[in-house]
């Protein structure tokens, strides 16, 4: 656990010590703010519930983009700069390295997600929404962020190029976003599998976004996180045999 935390702490500090972490944070927060102003705060009278739901709708998108941008460097940059040798020649296990890197990205992303809390707070002050809706929405965003961070971490183990890692991570994430569309043209039983895999349509839109927590969604998103971290660890470990 100590070794895992050592990796996490160093990676986390690299987000705060580099311009990249601040650029991602600034861009995501600005986009979130602009979308909130443009779509949620309209002149048309609306229920506070609807405003909060819309906030989670576009926050889902910005969270997934942020996760890809934050994770693309995790392993690819180390390979590019050859600093991977420091980790490779240490007694750290592959799981500690991958786990530590994932945790650092997730912690930074969580801070970024929580930094948007002023927007739900404005809705609460000027309208009427339940704390449960606010909490469930944020839990959903963090769980989605966790799954996409794991996907991005896996993608980052596949290439030396951060750009390639970002593209692979994006393709995998987009596949999981549009799988409900593919389900419509697929035959049984593949259609139900594809439909179930859909990150937004099946596991966010009708539950977290609306203020409900379904354990099936929690289990699915955690499984996705764990599965991609396992894959990342396997791919990362294979480098010693290439």
């Amino acid at each position: 656990m100590n070794a895992l935390w050592l990796v996490t702490r160093r990676e986390l500090s690299s987000y705060f010590n580099s311009i990249w972490g601040y650029i991602v944070a600034a861009v995501i927060l600005i986009i979130d703010g602009l979308l909130f102003n443009a779509f949620a705060l309209t002149d048309r009278p609306r229920l506070s519930f609807e405003v909060l739901r819309d906030f989670y709708y576009f926050s889902f998108g910005t969270t997934t983009i942020a996760a890809i941008l934050l994770t693309m460097r995790l392993v690819a940059e180390e390979k590019q700069n050859n600093t991977i040798v420091l980790l490779d020649s240490s007694p750290l296990t592959d799981w500690q390295i991958i786990g530590g890197k994932f945790l650092s990205a997730l912690m930074f992303l969580t801070l970024l997600i929580l930094a948007t809390a002023y927007m739900p707070a404005m809705i609460m002050v000027n309208g009427k929404v339940s704390m449960g809706h606010v909490m469930s929405g944020y839990l959903g965003l963090i769980l989605i962020g966790s799954a996409v961070t794991a996907i991005g971490t896996f993608a980052s183990t596949l290439s030396r190029s951060q750009l390639v890692a970002a593209v692979i991570g994006s393709v995998l994430t987009v596949f999981l976003l549009i799988s409900w569309l593919l389900a419509k043209v697929a035959d049984a039983p593949l259609d139900s599998v594809l439909s179930y895999m859909s990150l937004f349509d099946r596991h966010f839109r009708t539950t977290f976004m609306e203020g409900r927590i379904d354990t099936k969604d929690v289990v699915y998103l955690l499984s996705l996180t764990f599965g991609f971290l396992m894959l990342a660890t396997r791919v990362f470990g294979a480098r010693r045999w290439k």
Binding site: N81, T83, V85
Partner: peptide
């Protein structure tokens, strides 16, 4: 492998530095 690596210090041609 992890125990073996604990007894080793390694410097490649290009120093790996943060």
């Amino acid at each position: 492998p992890d125990s073996a690596r604990a007894a080793i210090g390694y410097l490649p041609e290009e120093p790996p530095l943060y």
